[in-house]
């Protein structure tokens, strides 16, 4: 069984600023990271590899420099890393993105091994749509299990999976047949730390690049042309600066009491 983890290279959003003139993200000099939720998807794939001996492939769609992200995955122990990169993939919304990723997963399914699970982070921290994972499941007609915080059981032979979904104020235990697409939350696991010998091996390893000559998708379904949605404007909401209460250095106790009163008055302290 092949487990596919989809990961995305995103700008480190704590360091991102918005250009007030062009209303776009200032990306120059901003370091890229692996989308934090995706690191949990990748970790779970690796755990399944450890437990069941599944093969793990990791996919990422992005510009050529996203190769660095895939090398990080190789350093953690994935079996193959494929970068989906082509100018015609650029400018994609979630629909077009899921078209490309689905095509790649289909190709893996037919050429490498039968895909049993696709794991994605619940959303990316740059787009925040949470649509690509479900989009993949829909395109591939896989079972769709979102917001997974625990895999209770995986029956590889019987091709069934039971997971816990973390919902608002409750958990839901769901069982589904494979193949399935899971989106995962941070509580699922603690990502591992790469070992140095693996890092060194990853630096020399091959990252396969698949462009549209490999995937052969209709250009109307990918990239900007295949995207029914587009971003018209990005802006930082105006924030009114709050008042400073008391003096925490001079009178910590009085200031704390003041804060509690304020919170109580606004009904923000459940008692």
């Amino acid at each position: 069984m092949l487990v596919v983890a989809c990961i995305k290279q995103v700008p480190d959003t704590t360091q991102v600023q918005i250009d007030p003139v062009t209303n776009t993200l200032v990306r120059e000099g901003i370091p890229f990271i692996v989308n934090p939720y995706d690191t949990h998807a990748l970790e779970e794939a690796l755990r399944l590899k450890d437990r069941f001996g599944c093969k793990v492939a990791v996919l990422s769609m992005g510009p050529p420099n996203a190769e660095a992200t895939l090398r990080k995955a190789l350093a953690l122990g994935v079996d193959m890393a494929i970068l989906l990169s082509d100018r015609v993939f650029g400018g994609a919304d979630t629909l077009a993105t899921s078209n490309v990723l689905s095509a790649a997963i289909r190709k893996l399914n037919s050429e490498v091994d039968e895909v049993g699970l696709v794991l994605c982070g619940k959303q990316t921290i740059d787009g925040d749509t949470a649509q690509v994972g479900p989009g993949i499941a829909t395109r591939l007609a896989y079972q769709q299990l979102t917001l997974v915080d625990r895999i209770d059981n995986l029956d590889v032979g019987g091709k069934r999976i039971r997971v816990s979904r973390k919902l608002e104020g409750r958990h839901e235990i769901v069982e589904a047949p494979l193949p399935a697409m899971l989106t995962v939350v941070r509580e699922l696991n603690r990502p591992r730390y790469p070992r140095v010998p693996m890092r060194l091996a990853a630096a020399d390893a091959q990252v396969e690049v698949w462009n549209n000559q490999v995937l052969k998708l209709d250009e109307q379904s990918i990239g900007l042309k295949g995207s029914p949605t587009w971003v018209s404007k990005i802006f930082s909401p105006e924030r009114v600066k709050g008042e400073i209460l008391g003096d925490g250095y001079a009178d910590p106790e009085g200031t704390a009491a003041l804060l509690i009163d304020k919170l109580l008055a606004k009904d923000m302290l459940p008692l």
Binding site: R190, R192, Y193, P194, R195, V196
Partner: peptide, 16 residues
């Protein structure tokens, strides 16, 4: 740390 990636869990955040 380097061969086993095994260390007290508080250090994971620090390293990253």
């Amino acid at each position: 740390v380097e061969n086993e990636a095994r260390f007290p869990e508080e250090l994971l955040n620090l390293f990253e």
